[in-house]
Computed example of a mutant assay.
Amino acid sequence: MDIDSYLAGTGHRTAALATSHGLVAADAAVRLAETERFHEEKEDLAGRLTERWGQPYHLGLQTVRLRTAAEEIPEPWAELSLRVGDVYLWRAEEHARWVVLGVADLDPSDEIQLLLVVTDTDPP
C-alpha cells in the first residue's frame, strides 16, 4: 500500500493509504462500488492492526460532526468527523497514542480515501 498523501498537525499525523482517482465526476453506481472496495480494504487492515493492539473501539463520528457547529472540537477529530462516518481506533499504550482507521467517503465532491491517523488527542 502506497501512501498517497500525508498531513500533520500538533500531536497528530494523517496518511491517506489509498485514494480513488476520478470518482468526483463518476456515476453514482461506480462511486458506490469503489466505496465498498475501500471499506473492504479498511476491514482487511483493521484485522492486521487488531493482531497488534487487540480489539478496536468502533466510534461513529456523526455526533462529533454535529458538535462542531456549537463547540470547538480538537484536531484531528473535527476534520475526521467532516470526512469519515465512523472509525476503528486502538490505544497504542506503548506510544501513548491513538491509532485511527477510517474511510473518507462523506463528500461526493471529493475523492474517497482510506485514512490512517495517529494522534495523542483523546477522542471527543
Rank of each mutant, 00 (worst) to 15 (best):
M1I: 14
E41R: 15
A78V: 07
H58E: 15
T68I: 01
I112W: 03
T121P: 02
I3V: 15
R91K: 11
T68S: 07
L32G: 12
L49Q: 02
W98Q: 08
I73P: 09
A8N: 11
E40N: 09
R97D: 05
A8Y: 05
G11E: 07
H21D: 15
E71M: 10
T19V: 08
Y88E: 02
M1V: 13
R65H: 12
E41H: 06
T10H: 13
A26H: 10
E93L: 08
L82M: 10
A46M: 03
A96M: 05
H39A: 09
R67K: 11
A25R: 11
V84N: 04
D44Y: 05
P56M: 04
L45C: 04
D44A: 13
W53K: 05
P56T: 06
L23Y: 10
L32K: 14
R83T: 13
V24E: 11
A29F: 00
R48Y: 08
Q113K: 15
G54V: 03
A18V: 02
P76L: 00
F38K: 07
A33Q: 12
R67P: 10
Y57I: 09
H58C: 01
H95E: 13
E79G: 15
P124L: 08
K42C: 12
L61G: 06
T35G: 15
P56F: 00
I73D: 06
V103Q: 05
D105E: 11
E34L: 00
E111F: 00
D2G: 14
P123R: 03
E41D: 13
V118F: 02
E36M: 09
R91C: 01
H95K: 08
A46S: 09
L80E: 07
Q62N: 07
W90L: 07
W53Y: 15
E36P: 00
E94T: 13
Q62I: 09
D107G: 02
V118T: 15
E71P: 04
A69K: 09
A96R: 12
V64T: 15
A8R: 11
L17M: 07
E41S: 11
S81N: 03
A25V: 10
D27E: 14
P108A: 06
R67I: 05
L7H: 13
L49G: 05
L101K: 04
A26T: 12
A69S: 11
D4M: 15
D86Q: 14
H21K: 13
V100Y: 00
A69G: 09
E93K: 10
R67W: 04
A25S: 13
P108F: 01
L101P: 07
H95Q: 10
L23M: 12
L7G: 06
D107Y: 00
L61Q: 03
L17G: 04
P56G: 07
P108L: 03
Y6A: 07
P56D: 03
E79W: 11
H21E: 14
T119H: 02
A104S: 12
W53C: 05
A16Y: 09
A28F: 08
L61F: 01
E94Q: 11
I73K: 09
K42A: 14
G85P: 09
V99H: 14
L89V: 05
A96C: 03
D122V: 06
D4W: 03
V117K: 00
T121E: 07
E79H: 11
L32A: 15
R83G: 14
V118E: 11
R91P: 02
E93V: 13
D122E: 15
V100P: 04
L66M: 13
R48V: 08
H39D: 08
L82P: 01
T35N: 13
A69N: 11
G22T: 07
